[in-house]
Design a binder for these strands. Structure first.
Lengths: 104, 104
DNA sequence: AAGAAATAGTTTGTAAAGCAAACTGGGTAT
DNA sequence: ATACCCAGTTTGCTTTACAAACTATTTCTT
């Protein structure tokens, strides 16, 4: 079974469902824009922006501002740190479950 | 990739790390007592009690009060509902990750 | 040049939740 | 009677998510 520390130290930045979804999108697609996530997750713009800001502060995502047909277009991508953190997050869950499976 | 609804509808009662740890203990060991969890997770008594109360209200755990050598001894166990909810919780995570793995 | 429209935010206010520490109750030992 | 456990409730603090309102920046229209 999991030790105390293992499960308690889960990365809270990623653990929040909305941010986990964002990280999943980015991990899969590499580059994802604001509106895509907005519609995919059905959030308000403000809510999405603040979650992304949090991921930015954690150093997990880069913001790429471009113009698409002369309209502002913001795109996001995982940093190396973000990629590692995301993979580590899943490792925790694997460990927890494996530990459970070991016994009856 | 996950749809909007899939990840957002994660069971918040279980999703909280401390409660996930408690549920894991119970799923593995069937019967676990208060002090065991307390030491395992290094929580305050009040904190543990309130998390367990929340699991109780959700119908996920049963409370079994006994006396052990004439000293009160509280033990917990998953209900059928709790067992199902716990299994369903992991299913969400499997689905999310499988969806990611499908693409490069 | 002025005003409308769109993107991508920031700010504000509210409600919920986690946590530690203090306090409580019910039973036991001295 | 008093002191002592176990388990749980209450209180107060802090953080957070979220929606709604507001803002800044650039483009389009007239």
């Amino acid at each position: 079974m999991q030790e105390a520390g293992k499960i308690i130290k889960i990365d809270r930045v990623i653990h929040e469902p909305v941010r986990l979804a964002i990280m999943s999108c980015l991990y899969e697609k590499k580059y994802v824009d604001f509106v895509f996530i907005l519609e995919k997750l059905d959030l308000t713009r403000g809510n999405l922006a603040s979650h992304i800001k949090r991921l930015e502060y954690a150093g997990y995502v880069d913001v790429i501002k471009t113009f698409k047909e002369r309209i502002p277009h913001t795109t996001y991508a995982l940093t190396t740190k973000g990629k590692k953190a995301y993979e580590k997050y899943w490792c925790f869950f694997d460990e927890i479950r494996q530990d459970i499976d070991l016994e009856g």
